[in-house]
Design a binder for these strands. Structure first.
Lengths: 203, 203
DNA sequence: CACCAATCTTTACATTGTAAATTATTCTTG
DNA sequence: CAAGAATAATTTACAATGTAAAGATTGGTG
């Protein structure tokens, strides 16, 4: 019973890096077919393994999605770090651009009912991204919040809400009518940058 | 074969208002158990009818959820109309408060992969809410957007993004740490009002 | 009353997630 | 190198879901 199929052939068992392969396949399907195409059977089928092959690596579907979302937050942190010492608008724009360029992943990262928010790795990655974002956003802006906002939490929430709202609305396609109506045609990213300008820096 | 159970008893067939009853049950389950408790079989079971009883009224599960989301947008429009001729902050606050007081419903209203956005009634209700919100937000604010924003679409997107982002983050529980850290304790709504103040009116 | 359309039920089936048991492979240790 | 243990993957089985199809029940209209 030597060979099984004409497939890769290396070794069916102990695939070696099935974990990263499953994450890769899942991510491709996520961006290609949307978030509710992320069925465990579909992912494993696409990867050429049996349905239960994911169990040793992720436990269950929720575990796999959590790992994928974790990866997303790690990449987001990287992206935020790249546009580093620059202005608030750059940090905000990096956030929004990451979202609209990875819409499925970004959606998954914030879909609390599909992942396990108490997972250690996830919590770590998310906290890191959030802390980094807050730090970048606050570096230029202690805006005119109410005097009771001693710690700056209100201002930080306001800044985060601005960029996050823009990201979510853009991903959901709800800004498309405004974009075309404003003459930006198919340059959504330019429109988003303009909207950010209108939001974060009216000092 | 007169009676069936000790239930309402009126008539098992031709329930009369099964449509509104199913929507009521679904909404209760939505807010009580979260959005992924909205299974067709669970809803019909809770309503005391067979699994396929929803078909004549909604077609399928997506149709039911779409009707529920439509109802949500109608209520949102009502809420926006109530706090009418007042300031932008009031309109924005009405939007955010509706969200945090109906978190499941609000989430469903914007979950494009669970509903049918091309449904006529849904489109009508959503457009009505969006138009009303834009009108309320724009009535006080032609803010210092770029000179190229002739139609005001950029400013409108910015304002919508602010309130929507605040709503989404609050519903997802992501603002909770900031709320407690800022000393607002369990008065999240006061925190949200403060954040809105910091966002929409820094003229 | 007879008929029809609408409403609801029953049955059946494909699909999903995953628990349990099994098999195959690799690693460890003598 | 030869077991034995540990890991990885498969197979099988089962409960739950959405819904298509066909049958049963009711109300309204001729």
């Amino acid at each position: 019973m030597a060979e099984k199929q004409t497939s890769a052939g290396k070794d069916d068992y102990h695939h070696g890096n099935l974990r990263v392969e499953l994450l890769r396949v899942a991510r491709d399907m996520l961006e290609a077919e949307g978030i509710n195409a992320l069925k465990l059977r579909a992912i494993t089928r696409e990867a050429g393994v049996s349905a239960m092959a994911a169990t040793p690596h992720f436990g269950n579907l929720r575990g796999l999605l959590t790992a994928l979302a974790t990866q997303g937050f790690e990449e987001l942190a990287c992206t935020l770090r790249e546009g580093n010492g620059r202005s608030v608008k750059d940090a905000g724009l990096a956030y929004v651009l990451f979202a609209v360029r990875n819409p499925g992943l970004f959606t998954l990262m914030f879909r609390g009912d599909a992942i396990n928010r108490h997972d250690a790795a996830f919590t770590h990655a998310a906290q890191q991204s959030f802390g980094l974002l807050g730090q970048l956003l606050a570096q230029t802006e202690p805006p005119k919040t109410h005097k009771s906002d001693v710690g700056g939490e209100v201002g930080q929430a306001a800044l985060w809400a601005k960029v996050h709202g823009l990201a979510v609305l853009a991903i959901d396609g709800l800004l498309a009518p405004l974009v075309v109506q404003s003459g930006f045609a198919d340059h959504q990213e330019a429109f988003l940058a303009q909207a950010l300008d209108a939001m974060v820096g009216p000092v």
